[in-house]
Every structure is written in C-alpha cells, then in structure tokens.
C-alpha cells in the first residue's frame, strides 16, 4: 500500500497576471507522488519544471489549485511555511553558488541550524550527509571555496540533505558536470534514497540519466502535465517524447528508427539488456528474408 506524500490538485501558476506579458507557467497540474519513489521530472526548457517544484515547498504561491503535503494544504497556515521547507528540501540548479560559510561543516549545518536543532544532532547530521555525498570528514574543515566544482556541488547537495527532508528535490543536479561527475551525482542520489527511504524528485533534461535511476517519470510539456507513469510506461510514448523536443536515449532512438523502417519492435527500450534481447529476437525472426 503506497502512501501519497505530495499531491497537487489543479495547480496553475500565472506570471505577471493582468499585464500584457501574462504567461501561464503551469496549467492545471494534478499529480500524486507516493512515498519512497524516485521521480524524474523532465521537459524542455520553459516547460514549467522549475516553476512546478518551487510550488512544492511554497517558494511560489499558486494562482489557483492546492498543494498537499502529507494530506495537508501547505498554505493552510502561512506561518508554518518554513516547516514545509524543512520537509521538502529543494536543491536548485548550480547549487555551488549558494555556499557562503568559512568551512564546509558550517555550510552544511546552516539548514539544520535554521531548524533549531541541538548541536549534537547537527553534528550527527553533518557527519552523516558528508558520507552520503561520498566525501570524507577531512573536507569538513576546508573552505568551500577551495573545492573543485564537482565537490562544491556535492557539498551543496549535502547542505539540503542535512535537513533530512521527507521529500528531496534536486533541480538539474548534473548540469555542467563531466560524465564522471554526472555518474557520481546520480549514484549518490540513488544510494541516498536507498539509505533513507525518502522520496526524491530529480529535474533533468536528460532522459538518459532519468531512465537509469528513476522509478517514475513526470513529463511536462508546454506548461502542462504530459505523462506521469513508470519509466516503462512513459517510454511507450517515446516518439511523442521525441516530438516534444526531448532527447530520448540513443538506444530508444535506434528502436524508433527501426520501427519507422517497418520492423516490429517495441519503442520502450532504454536499457542495454532489453535492447540486446529485442534485437536478438528480431534477428532470429527476420532470418528467413
């Protein structure tokens, strides 16, 4: 039995309402996110991904609709919005630019300190999350400005994880990293979810990254929710995804092209194993020609 942790009902957000530059950033989004899922949020630039996630912790207030966290409207009591932000931790794009303290330790402790936790608890959390992001404790006394780009990124992510949010949202955590850095960040996200059992939302452009780690995928297109389904389910629409301007994985592309040529292959292929199996099946079946 799955428990809904985050839910939106007919969520709509309009920028600059009433002026000539009025834009619907998101339109009528209703979605239920279950406890413990790893949801990939994808969509092209300007599709409303970032606007959507900023509603989840009350940084933006929706024009109409509601956001429910554990069944309660987050705007029910305006004074408690800070508690919502501790429960729904967002790590924005290029989070390394938000580091400000003298030491990594103090920077990670900033969130927990705002939660008014005891010093021992803060210490426990800092030491825990630094290991979550794959850095050893010697980093804690360094200045965050002396670290490399990838290390800074991981420290910033740790700063959000240290609040132990029940929902962790990462906006483009891999942007601007080299392939090895991407790999590291993606694996630390999955291991974080396994260790803590919390819900994780990852915003990304890359279907390839998402297909590797996510359990469910939420696709935004033109300010609207296009699909919200399992990875397998969403990939059955891969030609539509391609039309939306998303870069579907190259394996999936191959199968789309094969299908165009008239071969009877499924389109929701995104792992190497499945591709191999399908190709073998195809070659055996087609050997009569």
């Amino acid at each position: 039995m799955s428990v809904t942790v985050l839910e939106t009902k007919n969520l709509t957000h309009v920028y600059s309402k009433g002026t000539t530059s009025q834009v619907d950033a998101i339109r009528d989004v209703s979605v239920k996110i279950e406890q413990g899922e790893l949801v990939g949020i994808i969509g092209h630039t300007g599709s409303g991904k970032s606007t959507l996630i900023q509603h989840f912790n009350g940084l933006l207030k929706c024009t109409s609709g509601t956001v429910l966290l554990e069944g309660k409207d987050i705007w029910q009591n305006k004074k408690n919005i800070r508690d919502v932000r501790f429960k729904v931790g967002i790590c924005f794009q290029y989070p390394e630019y938000q580091l400000f303290e003298e030491t990594v330790y103090k920077d990670i402790a900033y969130g927990p300190k705002n939660m008014k936790l005891s010093d021992e608890e803060i210490d426990r959390r800092v030491r825990q999350v630094i290991s979550f992001v794959g850095l050893d404790e010697s980093y804690l006394e360094k200045s965050p400005f002396d670290l490399s780009g990838g290390e800074k990124r991981r420290v910033a992510i740790a700063g959000v994880m240290a609040m132990e949010p029940s929902v962790l949202i990462l906006d483009e955590p891999c942007a601007g990293l080299d392939p090895k850095g991407r790999e590291t960040v993606l694996s630390l996200i999955t291991s974080y979810r396994e260790k803590t059992g919390s819900t994780v939302l990852v915003v990304s452009h890359s279907m390839e990254d998402i297909s590797k780690i996510a359990t469910k995928v939420l696709v935004m297109n033109n300010s609207e929710l296009a699909y919200y389904d399992t990875v397998d389910g969403v990939f059955t629409h891969s030609s539509e995804l391609y039309d939306m301007g998303l870069n579907v994985p190259q394996l999936t592309m191959l199968f789309l092209k094969l299908r165009e040529k008239g071969y009877d292959v499924p389109v929701n292929v995104y792992t190497l194993d499945k591709a191999k199996a399908e190709l073998e099946k195809l070659l055996k079946g087609g050997s009569d020609e």
């Binding site: 900023q54 912790n57 940084l59 800070r82 932000r85 501790f86 931790g89 967002i90 790590c91 924005f92 989070p95 630019y97 938000q98 900033y110 969130g111 705002n114 939660m115 700063g159 959000v160 609040m163």
Partner: peptide, 13 residues
C-alpha cells in the same frame, strides 16, 4: 533572487 530562493529553501528567514 536566485540565491535568496536557495537560502529560503534551506530555511533562511
């Protein structure tokens, strides 16, 4: 605005 949002998300008041 960007930095403010990021710090707000970490509970800045």
């Amino acid at each position: 605005e960007r930095i403010t949002n990021a710090q707000k998300a970490r509970g800045a008041d």
